[in-house]
Design a protein around this nucleic acid. Structure first.
Length: 877
RNA sequence: GGGCGUUUAGCUCAGUUGGUUAGAGCGGCUCGUUUACACCGAGUAGGUCGGGGGUUCGAAUCCCUCAACGCCCACCA
């Protein structure tokens, strides 16, 4: 046998880098080299906060599998690579590193330019690592279009978007209570808050001895800024006080004017049924404050906590104290004055900063906001409505402009969230990010990238929420706001994958930005994947010490093995576990495919590609494997088109290993001839193509042995001719397998390996001139060698098996048939009984429509006839 | 408080519109080195599909209900 140039075991690391380089060099990652319909995937840009983890590896696998599948199907595939500057996440990370290195206050020490430079250096380094990792994964992205959310073109897009939204009146400056991270010294959006359950004390007290209403709070120190007490309008206990104002002195700078107001939101059954209103330090209270103002009964707003987390001058005797100290002092005072009625432990949810980790303070501040409800000029719709339309009716009712989310259940979650969105706080007081394109001069405000004419204009020091830039990712990557060819050709994009954890943060904002600025959806299909967990179901994280670096894994077993271990056995939207055994399985399979190819290429002399018309199946085995293969072809294609990666992969694996390798290759050893060789090569070539999206490296490497002139990555995705299915052959072959299995059971008696036994049996059958078609189906039997087995033993085995087989020859079929018939008879009998009972039941027949009763009667007659037939057949055996 | 998900073999999970005898990978056990592969091959054991009820000729699949676990959202002060 002529050996192909392939070592016994596939060593991924010997090939992968070279293969990736050759792909890159070929130019085929760039869609401009292809002329099919465009198919576009934007890579969710990883944050430049470190290195890629396994979750990213899964994302790369999903994206690249899809991209390669579509490329093989003849599409002009564009997969744009990129990274995200991740504003607050990156700054928080670098600040933490600097603090750990002993710089107590990095912002003070390095100043804005200095700190930004430090972050930039870190980000650049992280970015370089990440881009290298993406290559290692085999991701087939167009590096000529590499993008970064913080580079010049993206900055241009961000500024343009901000300006347009401002000019449309959607972006406004407003004074209201925001989420403030003291540690991060910045606002945070509602989405950047993580709620943590903790124990808290609930204090029940009165502001003063003669104050008529008792209230409760977990934040007594904020009560220094109370300006009202809210009660339910129908609450009999407090009704009479509504509208009155009481002056109390609790130690703040000025005595507090507490007005009793009515509000439907107050739950009379909870606590004392009265709520101390602190407009400056509670979102809800602030809403009441605005409501009162709108009704013409304004109440005061007194901020008593500052940006530094300490009490302000307004807090009078508490000024300068930390909130904790102020709380203790205030409670002590209440207690000494006899105003404290109750003190109880409760469980409470507090908002914390997802990046800085500290408890969020509610502070009133002037910030930039994006209005969700305002009508967009000329569009007649709000942003909220656009976001709704995009996943329901399609934009303006156009179904081709509809985002389909897989799995479907996330659509409902998305819509619920869209309905409850509040205005989006855009401005951040951190430095790492797109600076807001706004200029001030006294009371004048100018919005635009460049300062207007004239002296004295000061730029707003704040930066934009990171999601403002990533929200525009699908079109900023294509050159918007310039009218580029790319934008025209590639937007809306085709497919987007992401984890469910950023559904609200990102998917929503991409839809918002795109429907607003492009009047197009960002992508047609969104595929939501789950999270990867470790063997015990725990999240992977550095702090938990269970983190896995994909690069280590690739070094050890190769990118292909990693890819299929990540992809197989998962389902959309559900979490999956990842552990070493899976990886081993992946590696084993890669090696199996390698060796299948090694065998086939050793058997077959490759003189060119084998076309379907070249095939001339001779034996049952030939017909069987072709039929199975053609079934597989349409299954794999269908699954991939439905984003069922795991299913497609598993069907492919079962065929490749369980049918092609375990059966057909074994049969091919005893059945030579051109027909077999053609089939071997025909199936191998196509299998490599189907496997390519999953395991690009090993398949491309094997391909070199078949056709060194071309690249598998742009080979044609083979489709099966529908008329090749041969169910008869499949059924017959299955029967053959059954009988072979029965014979194999005899092996222990003769102490011969099963495969040898089969071959022996085959030899015996032919020498006995048996006409059993079952055996002939396996092909023409050749003389076999039996390795090192002593001749005498073999001879005994052969004779023994032949005897057994001959005596079984008639019996095996009869037995199988008898079992089948008995089973069928029993089932039919049971069916008859249940039908008879049903029909005999008067309440049923009177209740059921006549049509159904008649059908059942007819079924019963048929079943009875079948039963008689089956009984006859059984008796005849 | 609202919502969602999960529960199938020892473990990790598939199971697309209800339809023969519920599958895979790993692990277990038995056997086998045979020229593609020991990163291998053959065989085998193992499941009341979380519990209960219902619809149906027929339910892992649809409906109701209960339970356990997990996740998301929500500032009842």
């Amino acid at each position: 046998m002529e050996k192909p140039d392939m070592p016994k075991a596939y060593e991924a690391k010997d090939y992968e880098d070279a293969i990736y380089a050759s792909w890159e060099q070929s130019g085929f990652f760039n869609p401009d080299t292809q002329d099919g319909d465009p198919y576009v995937i934007m890579m969710p840009p990883p944050n430049v906060t470190g290195i890629l983890h396994l979750g990213h590896a899964l994302e790369n696998t999903l994206m690249d599998t899809m991209a390669r599948f579509q490329r093989l199907r003849g599409k002009s595939v564009l997969l744009v690579p990129g990274t995200d500057h991740a504003a607050i996440a990156t700054q928080a990370k670098v600040e933490k590193m600097l603090i750990d290195e002993g710089h107590e206050n990095p912002r003070e020490e390095f100043g804005r330019d200095g700190l930004v430079e430090k972050i930039r250096v870190f980000a650049d380094e992280s970015m370089a690592t990440i881009l290298g990792q993406i290559r290692k994964m085999g991701t087939s992205c167009d590096w000529s279009r590499l993008a970064y959310t913080f580079d010049e073109p993206r900055n241009k897009a961000v500024n343009e978007l901000f300006t347009r939204m401002y000019n449309d009146g959607l972006i406004y400056r407003g004074y209201r209570v925001v989420n403030w991270s003291v540690k991060g010294q910045s606002t945070q959006s509602d989405d950047e808050i993580e709620h943590v359950e903790r124990e808290a004390k609930l204090y029940t007290f009165k502001y003063s001895k003669d104050f008529p209403i008792t209230i409760a709070t977990t934040r007594p120190e904020t009560k220094l800024g109370d300006t009202a007490v809210a009660v339910h309008p129908t609450d009999e206990r407090y009704k009479s006080f509504i509208g009155q104002t009481f002056t109390v002195d609790v130690g703040a700078k000025n005595p507090l004017e507490i007005k009793i107001i009515a509000d439907e939101e107050v739950d009379p059954a909870f606590g004392t049924g009265a709520l101390g209103v602190t407009p400056a330090h509670s979102q809800i209270d602030f809403l009441m404050y605005e409501k009162q103002k709108a009704q013409g009964n304004p109440i005061e707003i007194i901020p008593v906590i500052g940006k530094d987390g300490n009490m302000t001058e307004e807090a009078g005797s508490y000024a300068g104290m930390s909130v904790e100290d102020a709380r203790a002092k205030f409670v002590e005072w209440l207690s000494s004055e006899g105003l404290l009625e109750k003190e109880e432990e409760i469980m409470q949810n507090v908002g914390t900063s997802d990046r800085y980790g500290d408890v969020i303070e509610a502070l009133p501040m002037t910030q930039w906001w994006l209005d969700m409800n305002k009508e967009i000029p000329g569009r007649g719709k709000s942003l909220r409505l656009l976001m709704r339309e995009a996943v329901t009716t399609g934009l303006n009712g156009d179904q081709s402009q509809k985002v389909t989310i897989t799995p479907d259940r996330f659509t409902k979650l998305y819509l619920d969230r869209v309905d409850s969105l509040r205005d989006w706080c855009l401005s951040r007081q951190i430095w790492w990010g797109h600076q807001i394109p706004v200029w001030y001069k006294g009371d004048e405000v100018f919005v635009g990238t460049e300062a207007p004419e004239g002296d004295g204009w000061q730029r707003d020091p704040d930066t934009l929420d990171t999601w403002f830039s990533s929200g525009s990712w699908t079109f900023s990557t294509l050159g918007w706001p310039d009218k580029t060819k790319d934008l025209e050709k590639f937007h809306p994009t085709a497919w987007m994958q992401m984890g469910y954890e950023i559904l609200y943060l990102w998917l929503m904002r991409m839809i918002l930005m795109s429907t607003y600025s492009q009047e197009e959806i960002p992508f047609k299909d969104a595929y939501i994947h789950g999270m990867l967990r470790d063997k015990d179901g725990k999240k992977f994280s550095k702090s938990a010490g269970n983190g896995i670096d994909p690069i280590d894994v690739i070094q050890e077993v190769g990118a292909d093995a990693l890819r299929i271990s990540l992809l197989l056995g998962i389902s959309p939207g559900n979490d999956s576990r990842f552990y070493p055994e899976k990886l081993e399985g992946g590696r084993n399979f890669v090696n199996k495919l390698w060796n299948i190819s090694r065998f086939v290429l050793g058997q077959v002399e490759v003189v060119g590609h084998v076309a379907e018309t070249d095939l001339s199946p001779q034996t049952l085995a030939d017909r069987w494997i072709l039929s199975r293969f053609h079934t597989l072809q349409s299954e794999v294609t269908d699954h991939l088109e439905a984003f069922e990666f795991s299913q497609a992969g598993e069907k492919l694996r079962n065929f490749t290993w369980g049918e092609f390798a375990d059966w057909y290759l074994e049969i091919a050893k005893v059945q030579d001839g051109k027909s077999t060789q053609d089939i071997l090569l025909y199936i191998l070539e196509r299998l490599l193509t189907y496997w390519h999206p999953f395991m690009p490296f090993v398949t491309e490497q094997i391909w070199k042995q078949i056709d060194p002139e071309t690249m598998l990555m742009i080979h044609e995705w083979p489709m099966a001719a529908q008329d090749h299915l041969d169910k008869e052959a499949e059924a017959e072959f299955e029967k053959t397998q059954e009988i072979i299995a029965a014979i194999r059971n005899l092996r222990s008696e003769y102490n011969v390996a099963p495969k040898t036994l089969v071959n022996v049996v085959l030899t015996g059958v032919e020498s006995l001139d048996s006409q059993r078609d079952v055996m002939c189906g396996l092909g023409r039997v050749q003389t076999l060698t039996f390795g090192s087995k002593p001749e005498g033993e073999i001879a005994t085995a052969v004779v023994g098996v032949i005897q057994v087989h001959v005596s079984l020859e008639g019996l095996v079929d009869k037995k199988v048939e008898a079992v089948r018939l008995t089973r069928e008879r029993d089932m039919t009998a049971a069916y008859c009984t249940s039908l008879t009972e049903k029909l005999a039941n008067d309440t049923f027949t009177s209740k059921a429509p006549e049509k159904i009763v008649n059908t059942m009667k007819q079924n019963l007659d048929e079943a009875k006839a079948k039963l008689t037939l089956l009984e006859d057949q059984l008796n005849a055996l």
